[in-house]
Amino acid sequence: MFSGQKMLIKLRHTIEVLKATAVATYKEWTAYRSHMAVSIFVGPVFFLTQAFIWRAVYSSRTTLNGLTLEQMLTYYGISAVINYLTYDSADWDLQMLIRTGQFLTFMLRPLSYGYFAFSQKVGHRILAFWVELVPIYLIFFYLFKIELIPVAPWWALLSIFLSFVLVFFTNYCIGITAFWLTKTEGIRRAFLVARDLAAGTFIPLTFFPEIMQKALFFLPFQFITYVPTRVFIGDYELVGLTMSIPEIVGLQFVATLVMYGVSKILWRFGIKRFTGVGA
């Protein structure tokens, strides 16, 4: 067989696994769509609190930190919508499988668990697309009047896609820690809080003191929420540094690659521990 043909077969197999896993996950979660739909209530309610707080804060001024009230609310609206697209529970799923021992059933199949988990995320997010995202998008767009149209749609899509992948790798790394720690709830939640904070979910990163902004610039987390949101809005700025959209998306691509590498290395060590090499 030609090596080209071999590769084609391998590629087809890879796509088949993605499809089958995504379909199975989609069906699995359909049973819980009412749980997912809770977001349609929770998302807008959280946004409302934010809107009231910022309206009060802005009552005596027109700009804060270079942002108008409208821009501020747009930031929150967009970042919320992006989070519904990129969310996953790869960390939770993996640590659960390890803790219950069910992880075995994956080792017994000719399959890379990481790829399986990623395919699960695809299926899960496709369901979330119409259960969470579409209703919330409509509420934000028509009820709260948030400008939810990206300035450069293709760049925004690309940036959101990279964030989708990046979130997966970061969460996956957290899940891998379950190979060492019997209980990972603590570190998991610690990480999620730190991640959300550093990603700009609570507040735009430009609100942090300068020294923290500098640190945040070099961490991969800004690429999770802050960068795609700014790309969506159409300009990027941090630590007084402005960058063009292609530049920052390029950096985001690099960060995603780095996280991929980190997850690969962690996985190698984790699986070694699981299989008891050298023990």
Partner: peptide
Amino acid sequence: DFFMSMIIMLLVEMGAPLLTILIYHNGA
């Protein structure tokens, strides 16, 4: 994990205070 979790349970609650501090520190 226990001590870690305890600290985290504290940190997750710090969202509102943090937002408040950042707002006041930015002059609003």
